[in-house]
């Protein structure tokens, strides 16, 4: 399964509060209604805390959710 590149915006302003680390793009699994996708999302390299940016959640992610719901 190839990793999809979905984040376009700038996320360099955010750091993990607990670990103090800058976020890096890392492969993350997303799951909905039995379907799984591997995508690159900003995450803390130490603890794995993931950021789902607003544009992604309200845009592409919402579209895919609807597609899967109608499948």
């Amino acid at each position: 399964m190839s990793t999809l590149k979905v984040v376009e915006g700038d996320f360099s302003g955010w750091t993990c509060a607990a670990c103090g680390q800058a976020l890096e793009l890392r492969p993350v699994d997303l799951e909905y209604l039995g379907s799984r996708f591997n995508v690159e999302l900003p995450a803390c390299p130490a603890c794995g805390l993931v950021l789902v940016p607003e544009d992604l959640a309200q845009g592409k992610m919402a579209q895919v959710e609807k597609l899967l719901e109608d499948k």
């Binding site: 492969p27 993350v28 997303l30 799951e31 799984r36 995450a43 959640a57």
Partner: peptide
């Protein structure tokens, strides 16, 4: 649910933005 917020200095919070998704993030995959 995602919340972008800041502490208001007296124990409460001011919320600047909210969004949500149904897809679940499987961390550490």
């Amino acid at each position: 649910y995602w919340v972008e917020y800041e502490p208001d200095g007296s124990g409460g919070f001011l919320v600047h933005n909210v969004w949500s998704h149904r897809m679940q993030v499987r961390e550490g995959a």
